[in-house]
Simulated scan of single mutants.
Amino acid sequence: MPTNTAAWLPEARADLVVGPATMPEPGPEEMLVRVRAIAVNPLDDVKQWTGDLMYRWLPYPAILGEDVAGEVVGVGSGVSRFAPGDRVVGYAVGMERGRRHLAEGGFQEYVVLRADLAAPIPDRLSFEEVVVLPLAVSTAATALFQSDHLALPHPDPSPSTARARADRGTVVVWGGSTSVGSNAIQLAAASGHRVATTASPHNHERMRALGADVVADYRDPAVVSQLTAALRGDRVVGVLAVGTGSARPSVALAAATGAARVALASPAVSFGDLPRRGGPSLRAMSTMMRLGLSTSLTQLSARRHRIDARFVWGSSLMTNEVGRMLWEDHLPAALADGRHVCAPEAEVVGDGLESVQTALDRLRAGVSARKLVVRL
């Protein structure tokens, strides 16, 4: 019988430790997957670095990780889309409230995935290429399609949807070169909308290749006025704010263009300055005060302009129709025929679970327009 191994977070703010783990068993509508590639996300870094600032319900020792790709080795009752031997990419939700935290954590050799949060991998794509998708594409879909966020119509590959781009209006994705932004551009275009986005100049052509019609430099002090001018005459149906500091300019742009909804996918300030230790500190107090002030100012501005600005929790799609639309209806076909590109590009930083901590350290140091991947 095979044995399981995990990269454990033994306690708050500790480095990951590789060690034995119980072999998980899939329940109804679940499957057991032999993991072949893992990607790291800012959520993993924040949880490791700040302790219980986020995911307070997650007990220690913990298994973090959301992005996995691998081979199905077993399925639970009710699973009909997958069978042992299938290559799949999926969203591991072990960090979420009410889930089996150890069985469903991504940083291990064998993981339980919900069958409705997974998609088959086309033969032409590697595990390393597709593993960049799960959390990012789920967060993008939640922001764009859930009724409490931008509430866009679902993607439709028919020719009539492509012709409807001008009629359905424009979606702005602030932070297009991010993992969430790169997927949001593609999903918004697939739902029949024109897309405007922001990115550094060296990423502009990549944004256009993903489906953006208008691209601006987010670092330009006049970027809001530039986008407002570029979108004059467009019906802007919503703005997705991705990246630290994106909320306030996104609300300002919504006010200037008449958009009534802003989906906030990132905190107002970076948690990178927080010390990696518990207890009070001046840096922690300063960060939290800036977070509270910036969030309050953003909400006040949104209310003044009658804009509905809400924070996005990417896993909420597993409780509604958006999850099924994305993982069962749209993504399998879109990956198979190349309509959805695996973006941003994967960078493999190492092999084996021992390399997950290396990837997290690299992520904390700063990564642009790439996704850090570990191969198992």
Rank of each mutant, 00 (worst) to 15 (best):
G51H: 01
P84L: 03
V75P: 06
E71F: 06
A103I: 06
M54W: 08
V79A: 14
W57P: 15
A62S: 07
P61W: 15
R56N: 01
M95R: 08
Y91W: 14
G51E: 01
I63P: 05
Y60W: 10
G51T: 09
R34N: 15
L43H: 14
V88H: 06
N41R: 02
G94K: 11
A69I: 13
L58W: 11
R34M: 13
A62Y: 01
A39D: 07
S80D: 05
G27N: 13
S80I: 02
R56E: 11
V73Q: 15
W57T: 15
D67F: 11
E104C: 08
P61S: 05
V79C: 09
A92K: 15
H101M: 12
V79D: 04
M31K: 05
Y91S: 06
A69P: 11
E71M: 08
R56Q: 09
V93P: 07
S77D: 15
V46A: 03
F82G: 10
D44C: 10
R81I: 01
M54T: 07
E104Q: 11
I63S: 07
I63E: 09
M95V: 15
T50I: 12
Y55D: 02
A37G: 14
V89Y: 09
V75W: 03
L32Y: 10
A83L: 11
G76C: 04
G94V: 05
A37R: 11
A62C: 01
P28S: 03
S80C: 14
Y60P: 11
E71L: 04
M54G: 00
E30W: 05
M31L: 07
V73S: 14
V46D: 01
G74Q: 07
P28L: 01
A103C: 04
V75D: 13
A103K: 00
G51C: 08
G94N: 10
G76D: 03
H101P: 12
G94R: 08
V40G: 14
L32F: 08
P61T: 05
A103N: 04
A83I: 07
G76F: 02
R36P: 00
L102E: 13
V88A: 08
G74C: 03
I38R: 02
R36N: 01
V73K: 14
R36F: 07
A62N: 00
D44P: 10
Y60M: 13
P84M: 05
I38F: 15
W57H: 15
R36D: 06
R81F: 08
G27W: 02
M31W: 03
G76A: 07
I38E: 13
G85E: 05
R97N: 11
E66A: 13
R34E: 15
A92Y: 12
R56A: 07
L43D: 10
G90R: 00
G70K: 00
L102A: 13
R36C: 00
F82T: 00
E71N: 09
G78C: 12
T50C: 13
S77P: 09
P84F: 00
I63A: 10
T50L: 12
V33Y: 11
P84G: 05
V46R: 00
R97S: 12
E30G: 09
G76L: 06
R36H: 12
L53N: 04
P59N: 12
P84W: 01
A92I: 12
P42Y: 12
R99E: 10
L43W: 08
G65R: 01
